[in-house]
Amino acid sequence: NQASVVANQLIPINTALTLVMMRAEVVTPMGIPAVDIPRLVSMQVNRAVPLGTTLMPDMVKGYA
């Protein structure tokens, strides 16, 4: 099973992602693959992402 990107903290809307905000976890359903974490750094979320939420492609501006 491939790990997905999960929020390590509450990420407010329009926040630029940093490594500290994300962790890799095997979850269902799968979200953004953990291998993409370096690519996500400095991209912004388009909604508030609660702690423990799996990041989906439509939550990150410019990802999809």
Rank of each mutant, 00 (worst) to 15 (best):
N1W: 08
N1Q: 14
Q2I: 11
Q2H: 11
Q2F: 10
Q2K: 10
A3N: 14
S4M: 02
S4C: 03
S4D: 01
S4I: 01
V5T: 09
V5Q: 00
V5D: 02
V5K: 01
V5F: 02
A7F: 01
A7M: 05
A7Y: 01
A7E: 01
N8V: 09
N8Y: 05
N8F: 05
N8T: 14
L10M: 12
I11W: 02
I11F: 02
I11E: 01
P12V: 05
P12Q: 08
P12C: 04
P12R: 06
I13D: 10
I13Y: 11
I13W: 15
T15I: 06
T15M: 10
T15Y: 06
A16H: 06
A16E: 10
A16R: 08
L17M: 10
L17R: 00
L17F: 03
T18F: 04
T18N: 05
T18K: 04
L19S: 10
L19C: 03
L19Y: 11
L19H: 11
V20G: 12
M21N: 07
M21K: 04
M21I: 04
M22I: 08
M22K: 00
M22R: 00
M22C: 03
R23A: 10
R23H: 12
R23G: 05
A24R: 07
A24W: 05
E25D: 14
E25H: 10
E25V: 15
V26W: 12
V26I: 12
V26Q: 12
V26S: 14
V26R: 05
T28R: 06
T28V: 10
T28G: 08
M30A: 10
M30P: 14
G31R: 02
G31I: 02
G31K: 01
G31Q: 02
G31H: 01
I32P: 01
I32G: 00
I32C: 03
P33W: 04
P33C: 04
P33K: 10
P33E: 06
P33N: 14
A34G: 10
A34E: 04
A34Y: 06
A34F: 11
V35M: 12
V35D: 15
D36N: 15
D36W: 05
D36S: 08
D36V: 09
I37F: 05
I37S: 05
P38S: 12
R39S: 12
R39C: 04
L40M: 14
L40W: 02
L40I: 12
L40T: 01
L40K: 01
V41N: 06
V41Q: 13
V41I: 12
S42N: 07
M43I: 04
M43R: 10
Q44R: 10
Q44E: 09
Q44V: 15
Q44W: 13
Q44C: 04
V45P: 03
V45F: 01
V45G: 00
N46S: 13
N46A: 14
R47W: 07
R47L: 10
A48P: 11
A48H: 14
A48D: 13
V49K: 00
P50A: 13
P50Y: 05
P50G: 13
L51P: 08
L51T: 14
G52F: 06
G52D: 09
T53D: 10
T53C: 04
T54E: 02
L55A: 00
L55R: 00
L55V: 11
L55D: 00
L55H: 01
M56V: 07
M56A: 08
P57Y: 10
P57I: 07
D58Y: 06
D58H: 09
D58Q: 15
M59F: 12
M59C: 03
V60E: 01
V60N: 01
K61G: 13
K61T: 10
G62R: 07
G62V: 05
G62K: 12
G62N: 14
G62C: 04
G62A: 08
Y63W: 05
Y63H: 06
Y63G: 05
Y63F: 13
A64N: 12
A64H: 09
